[in-house]
Design a protein around this nucleic acid. Structure first.
Ligand SMILES: [Mn+2]
Ligand SMILES: [Mn+2]
Ligand SMILES: [Zn+2]
Ligand SMILES: [Zn+2]
Lengths: 137, 137
DNA sequence: ACCCTACATTGGACAGGATCTAAGGCAAGG
DNA sequence: CCTTGCCTTAGATCCTGTCCAATGTAGGGT
């Protein structure tokens, strides 16, 4: 994740302790934390970090395309550092856990032009729902 | 929509003026109203209806499978009476308007078993995003 | 090494969406 | 008609996320 920070610094991003910690928390695979979860984990390393800064930082990382915002249900949005390999999500309907999945085919190709209603269609997002192994037991 | 009310009454649902009005507001195709929009339209016919009752009624209709809840991105959820014909949605990223779409193919078939992570996969929901004709102008 | 200053951080106020509560209202079976 | 258990209501409360004015600081310039 230090690649990320270096990249952003070169684009004029000030490297602060808070931003570094948020980036560290978001490092890894299958990470889909809510803003408050990011704040809680960041606060373990940097107790005085504020919620506002976490929200600011996440908003900018999303805006710069380094982090994806995933709105699952009507609940809190989740933040996904796996922004460079396009993928979709498999959700547990019971506990809300999320896994990255890579389905075959392009869902955009499945939308006939006659179904576009004059929209400029930009992306297709697939959400699979089911019951995870833990919840099935 | 009176079919719906009759069905529910037989299952022990009390038929009140408020519930009748909410059901009437939700009648039709391509209806994807927010709870507040439902409340506003219901209040035209029944001025004293409260927001709480609209929320209560919508929650129950969703729970009984008569209405779909569509969570758009961070905005208010939308309520969709078209619950009996499976379909997907095309969403304007700018103004939040929604259209029903019927893509070809079955997205469930595009998820390889190796990608299931032990989940029992139940459904796949596709959200197309773009810019609607009004917002493009 | 030290200054500057433009940019970042902070706590708390604020806002929209949705749920909860306790008190009073009413559908519908008897 | 009564009765009773479910419904409705206004308002409080919760949750997520944004905004603000005051304070702090990264990092380029000297
Ligand atoms: Mn992901
Ligand atoms: Mn629909
Ligand atoms: Zn689960
Ligand atoms: Zn639009």
């Amino acid at each position: 994740m230090s690649d990320l920070l270096e990249r952003l610094r070169e684009r004029g991003w000030r490297l602060t302790a808070q931003r570094r910690v948020v980036a560290e928390v978001l490092d890894g695979d299958h990470v889909h934390l809510t803003a408050d979860e990011v704040h809680a984990r960041a606060a373990e390393r940097l107790p005085e970090i504020s919620r506002a800064t976490v929200y600011n930082t996440l908003r900018e990382l999303v805006h710069r395309g380094e982090v994806l915002e995933v709105s699952t249900d009507g609940r809190a949005k989740r933040y996904d550092p796996n922004a460079h390999r396009p993928h979709h999500h498999l959700l547990c309907a019971r506990c809300g856990s999320i896994r990255d999945v890579h389905p075959t085919g392009d869902p955009l190709a499945n939308l006939p032009a006659a179904q576009s209603f004059g929209f400029t269609v930009l992306e297709a997002e697939v959400t699979y729902r089911g019951i995870c192994p833990d919840c099935a037991a």
